[in-house]
Nucleic acid binder design. Structure first.
Lengths: 217, 217
DNA sequence: AAGTGTGAAGGCCTTCACAGCA
DNA sequence: TGCTGTGAAGGCCTTCACACTT
């Protein structure tokens, strides 16, 4: 007996989605140089993949190219932004204003892509109240009301590993929709909350592994 | 006609190597709690993969388990460190002492895994000379001699995107063996130089993509 | 009885190759 | 002619299943 609604939306390989951001970065830099169109070949060379892969990846989301011509950069940039969800502004909260958190709070790269910090939290009373630009650090106690009032949708966790799960639970309880975790810990989250995790030391270990194996990544 | 030396060393899936670090983190935390042994099942639950995957991944590097018992944690930690190359200390140089670079210079997580900063560089005269712990920031001009004299093997790039390739070239010319890049740029490097790249904003875009698709990563 | 190590099967992702369009 | 879009083929990675070990 056939099941209805089996796999309702197009299945996009996770790896393909990850490359979309790289394509977008490269297209933006081309646009800054006034280039009007490009090809899958040039795009591929710019981000270090094959031309077939570029076409296949874009093909999961629609038809954006012109046979014989290539891709109109303005158009493809708009489409990629829409697909990635960065054609709008996201309200972001940052929890943990230590070394890494402070740097993230001042990092300009997020804002450029449509991510805006609207709340900063820390547990340490010596840090609560400190100002970053026009934003003041709030106490971790006030996560729930602040997240709701300011319409925070994404949370960034930059606290020590032992506190990470607890912070994640707070953010989830406050209704956050996605978590970006820098703590070296694996978080347990409900399936409806999106999750991206980066462990800076793990990545560095991958480098020492590559060097040790005498093989470039 | 058969080719000699075809594929001389065991082929390890890249993804498998990446998980080794996660296994190591989890094992270290178990050890801190005084646990003497564990199983592929428990290890898998701790890092969010399947037990078969754990056994397969470890199987690429040797036989570390005891049938009926599991894995001796002390032993497996030592083996993983050896495999990942973190059973020794690595001398690391950090280039670009802005917000992110400053945070990385003070981040304790690297040292804990055997990575030691022995040189800091920046182009800005206002930053050169500033001290981080016992380390002073050197001018970018002195990369080559400093890298050679202090035996730097790995370089971390935390400069703006337009300067990243130039900095990478300097590090390569100085004889560095691996580069960890935080700049939102794709670097061209000779094949013998290992390469790991993280774009913090790209990862955040993956989060907004997941939320937009209403699908957890 | 419990749990590893591993060939075989399966599935997903990448590469190939070319029809079709500008 | 140049380049995209896309089925088909190929390859890599994951999952399965069980022989084997303690």
């Amino acid at each position: 007996m056939a099941r209805r609604d089996r796999d309702p939306s197009p299945v996009v390989p996770k790896a393909a989605a990850a490359r979309l951001s790289l394509y977008l970065r490269f297209l933006e830099s081309l646009r800054e140089h006034g280039v009007p169109t490009t090809s899958s070949q040039k795009l591929a060379a710019g981000v270090g993949v094959t031309a077939a892969q570029v076409r296949k990846d874009l093909g999961y989301f629609g038809q954006f190219g012109l046979p014989g011509i290539g891709y109109r950069i303005d158009h493809l940039v708009d489409e990629l932004r829409r697909i990635l969800g960065t054609d709008r502004t996201w309200n972001v909260a940052l929890v943990g204003i230590g070394n890494l958190g402070s740097a993230l709070a001042e990092y300009r790269g997020f804002e450029r892509q449509g991510f805006r910090f609207v709340a900063l939290f820390d547990r340490d009373p010596a840090i609560v109240g400190r100002a970053f630009g026009s934003l003041a650090v709030d106490s971790i106690e006030s996560v729930e009301p602040v997240v709701r009032v300011r319409g925070v949708e994404l949370g960034i966790i930059a606290v020590p590993a032992p506190a990470a799960q607890e912070v994640a639970d707070l953010l989830v309880a406050a209704g956050i929709r996605g978590i970006y975790n820098f703590a070296p810990a694996v978080l347990q989250l409900p399936p409806q909350v999106a999750y991206v995790s980066i462990d800076l030391a793990v990545e560095l270990e991958q480098l020492s592994f590559s060097v040790t194996q005498q093989r470039p990544t």
